[in-house]
Design a protein around this nucleic acid. Sequence first.
DNA 1: AGCCCGTTCTACATCGTTGTAGAACGAGCG
DNA 2: CGCTCGTTCTACAACGATGTAGAACGGGCT
Lengths: 333, 333
Amino acid sequence: MAVTIADVARHAGVSIKSVSNYLNDYPFMSDAMRARIAASVEALDYKVNASARGLRLGRTGAISLVVPELAQPYFAQLAEDVVVRAEHHGLHVSIEMTGADPQRELAYLAGDRGPQVDGLIMHAVGLARTSGEVTELRYPTVLIGDEIAAEGCDFVTMAHEAAAAAAVGYLAARGRTRIVALGAERETDAPSGARLRLDGYRGGLEDAGLAAAPELLVPAGLWRIGSGRQAIEALIDAGVEFDGVVGFNDSLALGAISALAHAGLDVPGDVSVIGFDDIDEAPFASPPLTTADPSRHVLAQTAVDMLVERIEGESGPARRVEAPFHIVERASA
Amino acid sequence: MAVTIADVARHAGVSIKSVSNYLNDYPFMSDAMRARIAASVEALDYKVNASARGLRLGRTGAISLVVPELAQPYFAQLAEDVVVRAEHHGLHVSIEMTGADPQRELAYLAGDRGPQVDGLIMHAVGLARTSGEVTELRYPTVLIGDEIAAEGCDFVTMAHEAAAAAAVGYLAARGRTRIVALGAERETDAPSGARLRLDGYRGGLEDAGLAAAPELLVPAGLWRIGSGRQAIEALIDAGVEFDGVVGFNDSLALGAISALAHAGLDVPGDVSVIGFDDIDEAPFASPPLTTADPSRHVLAQTAVDMLVERIEGESGPARRVEAPFHIVERASA
DNA sequence: AGCCCGTTCTACATCGTTGTAGAACGAGCG
DNA sequence: CGCTCGTTCTACAACGATGTAGAACGGGCT
């Protein structure tokens, strides 16, 4: 049986509450008592029981981070940023995966899945593509990246549209005229990140005076490197002409580079490629990947900080923060 | 205030214990009662309080996964495998990072850091390089990857040595004679993965009748793509001749490919590169990365399953499982 | 009828912690 | 001396769930 606060109290010859006070840095305590208790804690190797404390305080000291897949570099790196920032607030992070399934995303928001936590950070991509309203929220919640129709929860989002437009502009300025949108989805009304990036792509084309061509709108399922590779291979096989690719994330762009290299095409000689996210691997691709950086660190940090404020009782209206972006110039475009 | 089991009982007009029985699928209950309670649970949107249940049962329903960095693809993908397998057992996973710091690794093992959980899976790399004995274990623990001197905890490890030797053999069979060990550490007595891979490298060299050369032993700090790139750039700058690289993980190997491409060297024409891990990105590098696959999925799955057995009371002697490896042939070597 | 037994339900104690209320103490004041 | 006040400590209740013990019931047996 684990050693409890009562064991420590007995060992130190003091009351249970005094031990509790010691553990919680209660200021009105003699140094002698503090020392006695410290010695007993040490001697018995006492550790507080988080369940009991959680029950008493109504807090668990943990938050959930819900993402589609951890294996995607962008989400893994986001998760690392979130874990580090949460630790800064003394919180632990339980990580859950949805596979971009809207049902699962909903279940996490409603608290039907996942561990009990004090708050939730979710990067919803499945739900963002459907247009239902989410009303059931079990915990203080911060949504990251994509926006969904949900009441009273904070958003930390990125400049999907402006960044995508800038990426297209970047390619157009370098003389590219047939630019693929890699990751383009079928139409939805919901303002998902994917949809906004597509809007930005269209806007960028228009700004540059380029014609839109439906065959250049290439969907890619889950935005993994393998999907990007397959999609571009298929495009080449189909004989579609193109001289630029905007990958809607870096994994897709890296997949495109892989497909182009395989087909014997030069990047950026024959085709320029630009990505989105600036994942850690981007500088090391061949060629190094030019990309739109939506400030992942800022996103993660802001999301955690906002969530902590909510957990601590902040009850103002729902907030919306948009992180800045900038184009990181490398050699692929 | 959240709705409790007592609220449900009152609403349904039954005792608290009956609600508890319902929630725990107690078999001796009339269907009428079951239905009444189900309706009340639904009506009040009742969710069990994990802290209270945890306090009563002495279980939290969560395990910790402790890794050096989540941003490294290998650990991210391992984490995904662990989360998926844990979910299969109804467990949640809290992820912690150590930055490979032995002090932090120790603190997690001793339960001085991290949330309260039912068990711990750790990929220790800092501790594996020191040779102290670890005796304090707070939870049932499974160590993954590297072995450390710890009493009574299960290991799930991989064929570090044999795989590294096979990788060297693979390059040697293709006529490579000056083979770099990328990720070689300074000597330690502790049988860390890094050390075992180096031993395997040496053995492979010997088997192939090749001479060892100290300038081909290249350390790389944290095994990230950037470290691999830097190390190989420095090697080229120093004028060291080599025609093969064994990356001690895939990120390092990918960094090597990046450095070689940057220097205008052809892979595998001028230099063959082989990695270790078979991360998801390996097939999509230019050229696709040949690598030693230590069966990451098996590792993760076995670790979780063994931990679950321990949590459920299995008390046999410490076990040691070694996952098989095989070389995945692609184009980089 | 009287008994046992399985089913169905309830009351109560308990897990380990922290908040509340208040006791005991000495110092400072009139 | 008697009072208040701040400090230091203690006893007890409470958080929300589950295990134990046992009550009440009806059916089947002798």
